[in-house]
């Protein structure tokens, strides 16, 4: 069998909601069962896409940083140049997350700079954040 974590987690969430929660004997247990089912549903969505969505973010940040001159947020210009050339140590989520977080820290700094100096760049970063947020959106019904 090829494991399909997303499907398994979604099925377990359904089992909790439909079969187990109605059998619980207290409102406290039923409420917690519902919340755990919701979390399983979120895990089901993210298990499938987590690496891909972070890699898409990394790719977008690297492309954006490539377009920026050294006079843009000059304190971080060298760090941005180094970031553009980096790849995650592996495709394990922890390694991808580490590179993603480094990029987000640089993005926050350049966004703060853009608010004061470059309205077009400010708008571009808001659009990037919009796409980032949509990639990670949880649809839980």
């Amino acid at each position: 069998m090829i494991p399909q974590p997303s499907r398994a987690l979604a099925d377990l969430a359904g089992k909790l909601v439909n079969d187990i929660a109605p059998e619980t004997s207290s409102t406290y247990a039923a409420a917690n069962t519902g919340m755990i089912a919701m979390l399983l549903g979120a895990l089901a969505q993210d298990a499938e896409r987590a690496v891909a969505s972070r890699m898409d973010d990394i790719d977008e940040m690297q492309r954006l940083f490539t377009t920026l001159g050294r006079d843009c947020d000059p304190d971080n210009a060298e760090a941005r140049t180094r970031y553009v050339g980096r790849q995650p140590a592996s495709l394990r989520l922890g390694d991808v997350d580490a590179l993603h977080q480094d990029g987000m820290a640089l993005l926050i700094a350049v966004h703060a700079w853009a608010e004061d100096h470059d309205p077009d760049l400010d708008r571009s970063i808001w659009r990037l954040l919009h796409r980032h947020t949509e990639r990670n959106r949880l649809d839980l019904g």
């Binding site: 979390l39 979120a42 808001w126 954040l129 919009h130 947020t133 959106r137």
Partner: peptide, 26 residues
């Protein structure tokens, strides 16, 4: 407690979308 994880993940996702909706010029 599951409520901490729900708040930390599900609510963060929703609140991020709300804030972004409020501040994004487009």
């Amino acid at each position: 407690e599951p409520i901490l994880a729900v708040a930390g993940w599900v609510m963060t996702d929703r609140q991020n979308r709300i804030l972004l909706d409020r501040l994004d010029p487009a």
